[in-house]
Structures are given as structure tokens and as C-alpha cells.
């Protein structure tokens, strides 16, 4: 009964993810991607970092690695999967979630705090919140601009699969509050199943009280039901 944090070459938030989950009492371990998913995997984190040096496109190489076929199969079986930052890019490149995360409109790497508005509180990842809640969670990415065709965006939106949008401190979703030019200020989305989610901001960096905000705890608690089952 363990959340597997998949470590690729170039992952750098894998330890943080284990530390944050452990802090919440959720059993978690780091697993090297070539070792495959352990049998007792009850949840999967695709952590942040720069897998394969962002060659070709961020997440493109990791998405085609053998372990991701296992992750896709597990996701289809209902195992919860959370992709954070580079893990979100990998999730989109793998097709676990729709859309793509590409170069920030600023063309710069942005490491700063962001405010997120909870768009759908009826998911494992957001049931600790209410719709409209504003969370303070850090971002750290150069390729976090969410891109998707108009029709697919409309579908994502109408199906309630937009999880978080960038907003200001008061919860207003505005262009000024959009750090990277994402379509519709989208910061995180659900896959076909609500047990699969990806987001660019780092909930594991907003979990330990020593680091300031603990607003990200609720996202990681999405694993709680299964890991303690």
C-alpha cells in the first residue's frame, strides 16, 4: 500500500514528493523508472524536474519510456496518478491528460508564488477544498503554458476537467494573474478519469509548515483513501 514516486534521470522533486506525502502520513517511496512499478503500488506520482534534460520537448522522452506503459495501464485500472510540473508535462505527452504544456509566454523560466482557484472541488485531489477556494502554491517552470485546440478546451471545461486556474489573491481569474500565458489560465487538469490529474504548480512545496504555505496538502491527500485502505 504505497504511493510510488517515479524517478527519471533528471527528476529533482522526487524526494520532496516523498517527504511531503510522508508528512501527511501517506506511505510513499521513490522508484527508479527502469525498475518498473512495484506490485503494491496504490498511487503514482510523476514528480517535477528536468527528465532527460528536456530533450526534444519537456517530458517527451520520459513519456515514451517503458515504465509509462505501466503507469497508463495502472491509471486505466483506477490507480490514482498525479503529475506535478515535469510530471504534468510527461502526463500530457503520454496522453494521460489532454493538451500540452509548452514555452511560457514570457520565454523565461519562472520561479515564483502563484494563486490557484479551485475550479472543481468534486475530485479526489480537491475534496479538501471548496470550489472557488484560493490556494497559494509555488510554480517553477519554463514550459508551463497550457495549450490546447479551441474545441478540446471547450470540452475539457464543460466536463469539469479543469482542476485549477491561475488567479489573483482574491480569486479573480485575469490575464495579469496568468503567469505563463496558459489558455484559460489553466494550471491543472484531470484526465478521462478523475483519479488522474496533472498540474504545473508544486503542491509538495506547499505542504510542510516550515516552507510557508500548506495549501497544497489537500492535493496530495487525494492519495489518502487508497494508501491507507
Amino acid at each position: 500500500m504505497t504511493v510510488t514516486v517515479v524517478q527519471f534521470g533528471g527528476s529533482n522533486c522526487d524526494r520532496d514528493a516523498v517527504g511531503a506525502l510522508s508528512h501527511l502520513g501517506i506511505d510513499a517511496e521513490r522508484v527508479w523508472h527502469e525498475d518498473g512499478l512495484p506490485e503494491d503500488t496504490t498511487g503514482i506520482v510523476l514528480p517535477g524536474g528536468f527528465s532527460y534534460g528536456d530533450y526534444l520537448r519537456a517530458g517527451a522522452m520520459a513519456a515514451r519510456s517503458p515504465v509509462m506503459a505501466e503507469v497508463r495501464a495502472a491509471a486505466e485500472d483506477g490507480v490514482p496518478v498525479l503529475g506535478v510540473c515535469n510530471g504534468a508535462q510527461i502526463g500530457c505527452e503520454t496522453g494521460l491528460t489532454d493538451g500540452a504544456f509548452t514555452t511560457n509566454a514570457s520565454a523565461r523560466f519562472q520561479c515564483e508564488n502563484a494563486y490557484l482557484r479551485v475550479e472543481n472541488a468534486d475530485t479526489p485531489w480537491t475534496r479538501a477544498y471548496d470550489e472557488g477556494d484560493v490556494l497559494s502554491v509555488p510554480i517553477a517552470h519554463g514550459e508551463g503554458r497550457f495549450e490546447i485546440g479551441e474545441e478540446r478546451y471547450e470540452r475539457l471545461d464543460s466536463e469539469g476537467r479543469v482542476l485549477f486556474r491561475y488567479c489573483d489573491a482574491d480569486g479573480n481569474v485575469t490575464d495579469d494573474a496568468n503567469p505563463n500565458g496558459s489558455r484559460g489560465n489553466v494550471a491543472g487538469v484531470l484526465g478521462e478519469r478523475d483519479t488522474v490529474a496533472v498540474l504545473m504548480p508544486h503542491p509538495e512545496r506547499a505542504t510542510l509548515p516550515d516552507l510557508g504555505s500548506t495549501d497544497g496538502q489537500g492535493v496530495l491527500r487525494g492519495f489518502e483513501a487508497v494508501s491507507n485502505a
Binding site: A60, C92, D98
Partner: peptide, 9 residues
């Protein structure tokens, strides 16, 4: 199709 391009963008 499968790697060099991302058909979304």
C-alpha cells in the same frame, strides 16, 4: 506522429 511532433501544438 509518435515522437518528433506533438500533434496538439
Amino acid at each position: 506522429e509518435r515522437l518528433l511532433a506533438n500533434p496538439t501544438i
